[in-house]
Nucleic acid binder design. Structure first.
Lengths: 216, 216
DNA sequence: TATAAAACGGGACATTTGTCCCACCCCTTT
DNA sequence: AAAGGGGTGGGACAAATGTCCCGTTTTATA
């Protein structure tokens, strides 16, 4: 759910600390609820998140939003546009306060060609993203919302973060109404079986889930 | 819907024709309904489709299938597993008769490092795939099935291919029953407005859609 | 503190989608 | 020709989800 990429972050720290080319890399700051990237715009930077949490989402013409993923430390964004010069696919909006490395397209292209490590990191990142997306989409299409919601709550607690309710709903592709309803039903049934969710949870995390669950 | 990548195909033709390393590349043939890749398996080849159409899908524990995409000429598959050594995410099954270049992982890794063109082609392919997936997922989650179905029919006709009904349903993430029902409703309403679908259609394609639509 | 404005939860109903099942058609086999 | 099997379309009902709306709570502001 909240993706991170420590290896990428580490690379950027090294790179900005030592490489002469890295002068071009700026560090930008974004306040909560402001956008790093705006859907439809043409941009000239690729960002790598240094600190904070963002949401990556698409706004459809009918006013509905669909959140693809939450991007945290070390995640790259704007890379699709950096690879193929097209308009931005989706919005990247800061949920918490965010700082990010801003890599100009020119440098990005240079890195891809001349820095094997960087190239490799990006390749792996894209591969992971595709894999995760596939798993999630399929899961959400083929299982009842109930399961997906439970799983999402578990992930949220496991990562010890708080995501606004409306964002969770948008992530599941449902309305807040449905979200609330399902939540209520789960509570009524008193079913909370993280064992069946295929997520590793410590005892502490499990308690955390239960606590949040009651309070929501 | 049916993805192709002429540039990738062209590269492979050139490469197998001239490069000495390409000895390792075999051409494999697959009969309709057989699998190039089996979900959960460990493989040692990356495939690039030379001819034919395949479907890339995930089978969930509850017996349902979700089709991510239909891969045709020049599309690569098994690349996620080639980049990160993990078990196969999904099934790749031949719909028509298929021939494909089979690239051993060792050569694949070598190409990524030593052949800038290949590296670039893969990067672009992954980028396109992510983009397309995002667009589609969002569309399917946030619009009524009716729209998605209409759009799918249009795409199918525009590319002049035939996809079995059950595969179309699996692509939309719905049951055949729902598929049939929606189809019937559309026919009853006699609504078929490809203008609103954001797909470029020639007059001939439009007629083709209408024809198929009536016959289904 | 009082009051308006905005966010929130959930009831009631409408719509959409899934499940179950049966009738029909087209094969094949005997 | 008769019987059986597999695939297909759709009716009837159940379940899930969305839409509309209202009363309550929270927040902001004078």
């Amino acid at each position: 759910m909240l993706r991170t990429n420590p290896a990428f972050l580490h690379f950027m720290e090294q790179f900005t600390a030592s490489a002469p080319e890295s002068e071009a890399v700026a560090i930008k700051t974004f306040a909560p609820n402001t956008r790093l990237i705006q859907q439809g715009d043409t941009i000239s930077y690729v960002y790598i998140i240094r600190e904070g949490i963002t949401k990556c989402y698409l706004e459809e013409d009918n006013g509905k939003d669909y959140i693809f993923e939450f991007l945290g430390k070390g995640e790259i964004t704007g890379e699709l546009e950096g690879i193929k010069k097209e308009k931005c696919l989706c919005n990247i909006e800061a949920i918490t306060s965010v700082t990010a490395y801003a890599i100009p397209h020119r440098l990005f292209a240079w890195l891809l060609i001349n820095n094997t490590t960087f190239n490799r990191l990006l390749l792996e990142e894209l591969a992971v993203r595709i894999r995760q997306t596939c798993i999630r989409t399929s899961y959400q299409q083929l299982y009842p919302v109930e399961y997906a919601l439970l799983r999402l709550l578990a992930l949220e607690a496991a990562q010890d973060i708080v995501i606004p309710k409306k964002d969770m709903a948008a992530y599941l592709g449902i309305t807040i109404r449905s979200f609330n309803r399902t939540l209520k039903e789960l509570r009524a049934k008193n079913i909370l079986d993280p064992q069946g969710l295929n997520i590793d949870l410590s005892r502490k995390q499990l308690e955390e889930i239960l606590r949040r669950f009651e309070e929501m």
